Amino acid sequence: MAAGNHSTVKEFILAGLSEQPALQLPLFLLFLGIYSVTVVGNLGMIILIGLSSHLHTPMYYFLGSLSFIDLCQSTVIIPKMLVNFVAEQNIISYPECMTQLYFFLVFAISECYMLGAMAYDRYVAICNPLLYSVSMSHQVCVSLVLGVYIISVICASTHTGCLFRVYFCHLDVINHYFCDLISILNLSCSSTYVNESLILILSGINILTPSLAILSSYTFIIGSILRIRSTEGRIKAFSTCSSHISAVAVFFGSAAFMYLQPSSLNSMDQGKVSSVFYTIIVPMLNPLIYSLRNKDVHIAMKKIREKANYLSAQIM
């Protein structure tokens, strides 16, 4: 066992989203559909951005990175969740649980900072358009994305590493649909003061830092938009940010509700519902809200369809 003498628990049982038998099949079909839409939407966005040369801009570079993060986060969570709906007991081994937790933390933290990077990109584009090509050069974009992953890997490694010092006894049922950090700590029969303090500190940093960056960016963006004289210009400028604001509100709101309150006040049943938003719903919605009202994406999709039709005609 990976934990050595630190625990007598070799495996956990995931309680799942609901324990009512009548809901298992409907929930399975619902989340299978959500996962299908998530995979098609995010993978399609990545491929579309890669194939369309006019989408090779900083904005879509970050959007492609966000789609990759959403795709990976959903894949870490949902397949195992679907098993829980059809299996009598959803058993997950200790190493598998720690692995799922680690990658969930990596991609969840990455999403926080990627949304911050996207807000900075919109700030430069609207407030300093003449310096956009310099301020958001390819090297800057790559550095920002690398920074996002470096921070997320360090934080995820810190949380997971500190979890190995926690003792688990015979309470092996995780009251959640995946191996979430708080749910695992609730099973501990040793002191979790260090772990809980780490959650509050790092979650505060990882939520508040990008949130402040986003808030600052949009403060300047709103100021610039209000200085635009034409109504059409204001609407056009604001439309480039509205989708991002929606994604930020849902993701950070649900994440803050889950992680920025003391464990004594945290209801896991409420936490399950809250975590559904930022682990499952947000990854599904992001490619939709960033593409449905985006003219550049519509043009790219039209060109891809035309090329596909042309190739089909040539083959036939």
Rank of each mutant, 00 (worst) to 15 (best):
A2G: 02
A2Q: 08
H6N: 15
S7H: 03
S7Q: 02
A15M: 10
G16L: 03
L17Q: 02
S18R: 11
Q20N: 15
Q20A: 12
L23I: 04
L27M: 13
G33K: 07
I34F: 09
Y35D: 05
G41H: 00
L43C: 06
S52Y: 02
H54D: 12
H56E: 13
Y60N: 03
Y61T: 08
Y61L: 03
L66A: 12
L71S: 01
P79N: 05
V86T: 12
L101S: 01
L101G: 00
L101R: 00
A108K: 04
Y113E: 02
A117S: 14
P129G: 10
V134N: 10
Q139A: 08
V142L: 14
V142F: 13
Y149D: 06
V153F: 14
A156H: 04
S157Q: 10
S157I: 07
L163A: 15
H170T: 15
L171A: 14
D172S: 11
D180E: 15
D180N: 13
I184S: 03
L187M: 15
S188F: 04
S188T: 13
C189R: 00
E196C: 12
L198G: 10
L200Q: 11
I201L: 08
I201R: 15
L202C: 07
S203L: 00
S203K: 04
G204E: 08
I205A: 06
L212P: 05
L212C: 12
A213N: 13
I214L: 06
L215E: 06
T219D: 04
R227N: 11
S230P: 09
S230F: 03
S230W: 06
T240Y: 05
A247C: 14
V250S: 09
F251K: 06
G253H: 13
L260H: 12
Q261T: 12
P262M: 03
N266T: 13
N266W: 07
M268H: 05
D269N: 11
S274C: 12
S275D: 01
V276W: 01
V282T: 02
M284E: 01
P287N: 04
S291W: 00
S291A: 14
L292M: 13
N294F: 09
V297Y: 01
A300E: 02
A300W: 00
M301H: 01
M301V: 07
M301E: 02
M301F: 10
R305D: 03
E306N: 14
E306V: 06
A308R: 13
Y310H: 08
Y310Q: 08
